[in-house]
C-alpha cells in the first residue's frame, strides 16, 4: 500500500472520528443523529476494506 493510500485511510478515519464525536455530542435533533449514522456507513465500509 502506497503512502498516499495510507494517508487516505487516515483521512477517512479522521472524518469518521469527527462524525462519531459529533454524534455523541449531538443534543438538538434526532434527524441529525440518523444523518450522522448514515454518513458513517461508507466510511466504516472503506476502513474495514469491505467496499
Amino acid at each position: 500500500m502506497s503512502l498516499v493510500t495510507i494517508a487516505y485511510y487516515v483521512l477517512t478515519a479522521f472524518l469518521l472520528g469527527l462524525v462519531i464525536w459529533n454524534f455523541v455530542r449531538e443534543k438538538v435533533s434526532r434527524d441529525r443523529l440518523v444523518l450522522y449514522l448514515l454518513v458513517m456507513v461508507p466510511l466504516i465500509l472503506r476502513l474495514l476494506r469491505v467496499k
Binding site: 469527527l18 459529533n22 441529525r32 461508507p42
Partner: peptide, 20 residues
C-alpha cells in the same frame, strides 16, 4: 474547527450518501 465543519456539512455529506 474540524468538528464544526462536519456539523455544517452534515446535510451535504448525508445527501451524497442517501442519493447513492
Amino acid at each position: 474547527l474540524s468538528r464544526e465543519t462536519v456539523a455544517r456539512l452534515l446535510p451535504l455529506l448525508s445527501t451524497m450518501v442517501v442519493v447513492g
